[in-house]
Write a protein that binds this DNA or RNA. Structure first.
Lengths: 206, 206
DNA sequence: CGATGCGTTGATCGGTATCAAGGGGGGTGG
DNA sequence: CCACCCCCCTTGATACCGATCAACGCATCG
C-alpha cells in the first residue's frame, strides 16, 4: 500500500486553478492531500451546478467512463497525489485491499449526493443555507477540526451554485439567519453558530 | 457466481408495496429481477424527493452504514432476489469478481446522481420534464426495448417528486410540450416523441 | 349509479431570480 | 504611506416562474 502511494507524484494547484475539465478524457486519478477543491457541472448557456467539494482524503477521476463527469477547481491551494489512470487501475488488481475502501468511499459519496438531491429538489433557500452550514460544521468536527465558528473556504458564487440559488439569495439568507440570532458572521468566511438547535431546526422545517 | 445467486431467495412486491423504509436497519440486499421501484427521501413535514428508479439488474441496500439511506417502493409489480446482508457481504469476499462490478455500478449511479443534481439545481420545469423523457427513452433503448413511444410506469406524483416540481407543473409542462408539437400523449402513461431534436433542445436551453 | 382516486386546467400568490446600485477590503502603484 | 481600483459581497426594487388553492373530467370499482 505504501508502495502503491509511491507510484503517484505530488502536484500542486493554486486557488482558482483547474484540476480537470468536464468532459475531458480522464488521464489522471488524484488523491487530495491538502486544500479544498470544488466539483461542478455546467449547461451550454453557462448555468453552473457545484456538485460537491473535495477535501483531503478524497479521490478525483474515478469515473465509470473514460471522460470526467465533472470539472474540478481548486478553491484553496490544493496539494494532490497524481496517478496515471491505467496505472491506478492496475494497482487495484495488485493491491486488492484497495477495492473495499474504494467501494465504501464511492457509496458514501453516493449517499451524500442523495441527501443533496433532497436539498436541491425540496428545501427552501433558508433550509439550504442552514443545511450547508451544518454540513460544513459536521465535516470539520469529524476531522477533529474546530466546528464552530465554521470556516467557509469558498466564494459566495460557489456556495450559490452548490445550493441551486443565486449569490444574492445566499447573501440575504445569511443576513436573515444573523438577524434572527441563529448565526453571527465574524467575517465573510467565518461564521459562528450561535444556536445549533435553531440552525438544525432551520435546516428542515419551513 | 451461479452458486452465489442461489444463496438468495426470490421475493415479490405488488405495485405500491414498500421494499424498505428510509432510516430502517438494512437487513437485506435486493437484486431487482423484474418490475420498477422508486427510491425516495422525505423531510419531517412530508415533502418528498424521488432519488431515482430501480430497474432489473439494479441493487438495493448497499448502504455505507447499517441503515437505509432511502425508502424504496414498488411502482410496478417487482420481483427481486433477496440476500441477508451479512451473507451478501461475505459473498463479496468469496467471489472477488463481484467487487469490480459493484464498484462500476455504484460509480455509474453516482454519475447519474450528479446529472440529476444539475437538473434539480439549475434546470427550468420545461427542461426537467424534457430531460426526464429523454432519460426514460434512452434507458429503454439501452435495454433493447422500444424507445418511442416512451412508457411512464410511475404516477405523476412520483415524477413530480423526482423532478422537484408539483404534479400540476408536470401536467402543464406535458401539455405545453404537446401543444408545441414536440410530444404526443397517447395516454396517461404512453408518450410519443414527435421530434427528438426539439426534445433534446428543450432539455437544456431556455 | 355513486364514490374514489388520479390527472388536468384555471386563478392567484409568493419565493427566488433578475436588474441595479452601493459598500468594503485587499492589493497595487504612485 | 496613501490613494485608487478592482472584485466580491450586500442591499434594494421589481419581475417572473412555479407553488398553491380550487374546481372539474375521466376512468375504475364497488
Amino acid at each position: 500500500m505504501r508502495a502503491f502511494a509511491a507510484q503517484g507524484s505530488l502536484v500542486r494547484f493554486a486557488a482558482g486553478q483547474t484540476l480537470c475539465e468536464e468532459g475531458a478524457p480522464s488521464q489522471w486519478v488524484f488523491s487530495i492531500t491538502a486544500g479544498v477543491a470544488s466539483l461542478h457541472k455546467a449547461l451550454p448557456d453557462g448555468r453552473r451546478q457545484t456538485i460537491g467539494f473535495l477535501f483531503p482524503g478524497d479521490l478525483l477521476g474515478l469515473t465509470p467512463g473514460s471522460a470526467h463527469e465533472c470539472g474540478a477547481e481548486a478553491i484553496a491551494d490544493v496539494e494532490a497525489c497524481r496517478f496515471a489512470r491505467p496505472r491506478f487501475m492496475a494497482a487495484l488488481d495488485e493491491y486488492p485491499a484497495l477495492r473495499p475502501r474504494l467501494l465504501h468511499m464511492t457509496a458514501t459519496e453516493l449517499a451524500a449526493a442523495q441527501d443533496h438531491m433532497l436539498l436541491l429538489g425540496r428545501k427552501t433557500a433558508g433550509e439550504r443555507v442552514a443545511s450547508f452550514l451544518l454540513q460544513l460544521s459536521q465535516r470539520a468536527a469529524s476531522h477533529d477540526l474546530p466546528d464552530n465558528p465554521v470556516l467557509l473556504p469558498m466564494r459566495r458564487t460557489v456556495i450559490a451554485d452548490y445550493l441551486g440559488l443565486t449569490v444574492e439569495t445566499v447573501s440575504r439568507t445569511f443576513t436573515h439567519l444573523a438577524r434572527a440570532g441563529v448565526i453571527e458572521t465574524l467575517n465573510k468566511s467565518t461564521i459562528r453558530i450561535v444556536s445549533a438547535n435553531a440552525l438544525r431546526h432551520a435546516a428542515s422545517s419551513r
